[in-house]
Design a protein around this nucleic acid. Structure first.
Length: 479
DNA sequence: TTTTGAGTTGTTCGA
DNA sequence: GTCGAACAACTCAAA
């Protein structure tokens, strides 16, 4: 009789196209799915508040699916190596499988776990999360890529020999002879104490089922308009895959195959749309590539001269930004969307990030920390790349003189003001002409809309023109 | 080693 | 109102 296999679940909370699970089931013996809660091992990036909410519900759903397949999910907390050892002993397993993580500090932890266990158990690791693992691609000089476009071209040019096929979900699973004891998910206290998360489902539904539904609805309506619509926070123009991809509820390989099918069955426009979206998916790959090869970039700038950039610290301004009380409607709408729904549209992420870094001269690390805690899709690689890109200190960074003007960005990408009205309801009655510049509205217009500036809605906390000049001056200092 | 072409997402000014 | 150029160099990646 084949012995049992422990499958250590992490950011791969799905049954379909899960290589570790698939390989374990294929062995024919018992399969013991295990999730270990060990936030201390993830320091300094323990899961943030919004992420924990998503994780809770995703685990709940995964547990229900595994139960139906025949082998219930085992929940344990403690140090990973110890728990793996305990569980493997308790069920008499001879093998331990998992899908790899790539965040440098966790890859290091995993390597230590593997060293410790591999003497006694057959340990095997797999790739569930990426289309291209970071070490499988390099420039012709053998160095890591630091510019997206050549990275993307090189990925495409060499895709076939590196492509991993999708594997099926197991149809049923053999449980261990004796049921293993499992902790109660609720005891981990992943849900916020108060009602913070009440509206997180406006963004999406945690779990593999929610991910599948999102994938098919995006392919049916959304993908073909993606290029035109993806910059419109007032519309439903983006995929909203982010949290599903982060938690591995959605396989990037399944997305890739679905895009391919869409391109194949459709016309030239469908082909273009599929490629445009695939390109975005490769930004995620690129982020993982960078963080892997430049492991300090979660905390420090990739470009060294930025280490001495004269960031300021102003708790009141940071707080105004966090709470969506800056007096710039598009910024405030974005920050409130984040707080309310656990997610923010990508165009608005750029606007609020530029505002923090260039208008307020607060460090990108302060912004990254807030996003880490409040985004349900918080992902170390994506978060680090995004913030460094905005701050101008990262790979492929925006030139320093590219400073977003929050007013014109609002007017360009939320032209009717619908997005602002939705998340900044105190401005809802302002005519569109003034919705992005309430401080310029005539007194009678404000009165009619029921807005008293400084009372119902703040005046701008900075003068953008002057703030821009100050940012450029600060940049010149470190040049 | 040196050269060359190119680089996600912007803003402002002046014709 | 629209359009192109300037912003200001720098670094990467390939030849």
């Amino acid at each position: 009789m084949t012995a049992a296999t422990v499958v250590w679940f992490r950011l791969d909370l799905r049954l379909s196209d899960n290589p570790a699970l698939h390989a374990a089931a294929a062995r024919g013996g018992a399969v013991i799915p295990l999730y270990i809660w060990s936030p201390d091992e993830e320091r300094p990036w323990q899961p943030g508040g919004a992420t924990k909410w998503w994780l809770h519900h995703s685990l709940e759903e995964l547990a229900a699916r595994l139960e139906r397949l025949g082998s219930p999910l085992v929940l344990r907390s403690g140090s990973s190596d110890q728990v793996l050892e305990d569980v493997a002993r308790e069920c008499g397993a001879d093998a331990i499988y998992w899908n790899r993580r790539y965040e440098p500090h966790l890859a290091k932890r995993d390597a230590a776990v593997e060293r410790k266990l591999s003497g006694r158990w057959n340990v095997a690791t797999f790739n569930s999360a990426l289309l291209r693992e970071p070490d499988t691609i390099a420039t012709k000089q053998g160095t890591p890529f630091q510019v997206f476009t050549p990275y993307w071209k090189a990925c495409l040019a060499t895709a076939t020999e590196h492509e991993q096929d999708v594997v099926e979900a197991p149809r049923r699973m053999t449980p261990p002879l004796k049921p293993l004891k499992s902790e109660r998910l609720s005891d981990w206290k992943l849900l916020p104490r108060r009602n913070w998360a009440d509206h997180f489902r406006e963004f999406g539904v945690p779990g593999e089922l929610g991910a599948r539904k999102r994938l098919s609805s995006f392919l049916n309506k959304g993908l073909d308009e993606y290029e035109a619509e993806r910059n419109r926070p007032d519309h439903e123009g983006v995929s909203r895959f982010s949290a599903h991809l982060h938690f591995g509820e959605l396989s990037p390989r399944e997305v890739r195959d679905a895009l391919r099918l869409h391109a194949h069955q459709g016309d030239g426009a469908a082909k273009k749309a599929a490629e445009a979206f695939l390109r975005q998916l490769y930004w995620r790959e690129f982020a993982h590539h960078l963080l892997h090869h430049f492991p300090h970039t979660d905390r420090k700038p990739l470009r060294e001269q930025f280490a001495k950039f004269p960031w300021t610290s102003d708790a009141a301004k940071l707080r105004a930004w966090q709470r969506g009380q800056t007096g710039f409607p598009i910024v405030d709408a974005g920050m409130r969307q984040l707080w309310r729904t656990g997610w923010m549209h990508n165009r608005v992420r750029m606007i609020v990030a530029s505002f923090l870094v260039k208008d307020l001269l607060l460090s990108w690390q302060a912004g990254a920390a807030w996003f880490w805690d409040t985004l349900v899709d918080a992902d170390l690689a994506n978060n680090s790349l995004g913030w460094q890109w905005t701050a101008g200190c990262g790979a492929d960074a925006a030139p320093y003189f590219r400073v977003f003007n929050p007013t014109s960005q609002g007017e360009k990408f939320d032209p009717e003001g619908d997005y602002v009205r939705r998340y900044v309801p105190e401005l809802a009655k302002l005519p569109t002409k003034w919705i992005h510049r309430p401080e310029e509205a005539p007194a009678d217009v404000l009165a009619k809309a029921g807005v008293t500036l400084g009372k119902d809605y703040p005046r701008p906390i900075v003068d953008h023109g002057r703030a821009r000049d100050a940012a450029l001056a600060a940049w010149r200092k470190i040049r």
